[in-house]
Design a binder for these strands. Structure first.
Lengths: 196, 196
DNA sequence: GTCTATAAGTAGATAGAC
DNA sequence: GTCTATCTACTTATAGAC
């Protein structure tokens, strides 16, 4: 990974982010040193500070970028239809989006503890905004009688936990395609929330 | 937390385990130093090595103890009845057991990455033995037609992810009792796996 | 923009006194 | 069994040369 001296600002920046993401996902934020990230990129540790103020900003920017992307992608999806249709759209979107970014999902979920308090507040707010979208769908369905749930808030958290869990075992080279996985989870979600 | 000099082997050992568990749960294994653990216990760092060979063993023993306790508690539960009855027993057991040990659950789930390879194999084997119990129940129910699932293995992982997720938000001082939470999750699990 | 060198501090783990 | 002291290595971050 040695690199001869020179200027590479346009390509080094993204490479730093990518190396940090991969290493944080594999070993955890606290277990990864700036030297390891630099080695992965092919620069010396000091050079990283041209792209990030410090290690904490590296983590926060990754998580912030992931959440922004999640909310932007979701905003680009169709939001109309019956509660059942909206729930199906949400479920399929969630699985697809998360399966495409296993590292970012893993880091955003596992490294919340390692965010500085102010940074944590920001990420937590974005996460709640996303969850509220599902909760709204479930509440609408309960109101119209198509869903039957004792507690919409808990159902929201339960569904999201179930769906996000897919990233812990799914491998694209495995026996199931992403489309099949999407269908299997949608079947379970639909049944879990539906009225008898 | 200062401590006068003396011998306290019988009480210090459990205190080391407990302090490590709490600190690992709150800050993460890699972010916690042996000196922090020692300060929490009220001894100097060197004294910890009377109770653990090294930091890695501290983590492994905690996780191993948690998994052993999980499997032993489960083995003490009734295992007979219809697939639906067995699923209800498993669901309620899982929620109750996990709600009673939020720190151990959190550490056992989040710190898998920080186990040395051989230690990881052990914990992974225990985890799989536990999951297989749920998978057996689901398979039996599918065979007898009471459950309807496209894939028993994925349903197993989905149900466990959903149930374990309860530990991320549940607080005993919150608006719902553990018994209520148990009931809400059981309603969702039952519906999610049942045949139409 | 990247390098080398370094500051200042902390890590895990051990040795020997008591 | 716990203490103090210490070894060796590594940590984040910065300064100044190129």
């Amino acid at each position: 990974m040695a690199r001869t001296q020179g200027s590479h600002s346009d390509i080094t920046g993204p490479r730093v982010q990518r190396a940090a993401l991969e290493l944080f996902a594999r070993h955890g934020y606290a277990a990864v040193s700036m030297r390891q990230i630099a080695a992965e990129v092919g620069v010396q540790a000091g050079a990283l500070y041209n792209y990030t103020a410090d290690k904490q900003s590296l983590l926060f920017d990754l998580m912030r970028g992931h959440m922004d992307e999640l909310l932007a992608a979701r905003a680009g999806q169709p939001q109309s239809g019956s509660p059942l249709q909206r729930l199906e759209a949400f479920t399929r979107f969630h699985i697809r989006f998360h399966l495409e970014r296993p590292d970012a999902v893993f880091v955003s979920y596992m490294e919340l503890r390692n965010l500085a308090p102010g940074n944590f507040e920001v990420i937590e707010g974005l996460r709640r905004a996303y969850e509220d979208q599902l909760e709204d769908i479930l509440r609408d369905g309960v109101r119209t009688g198509v869903f039957e749930l004792a507690d919409s808030k808990i159902a929201t958290l339960a569904v999201i936990a179930m769906l996000t869990g897919v990233t812990t075992w799914y491998r694209s080279a495995g026996r199931l395609s992403a489309a099949q996985v999407e269908q299997i989870y949608w079947d379970m979600v639909r049944k879990a929330v539906s009225a008898g």
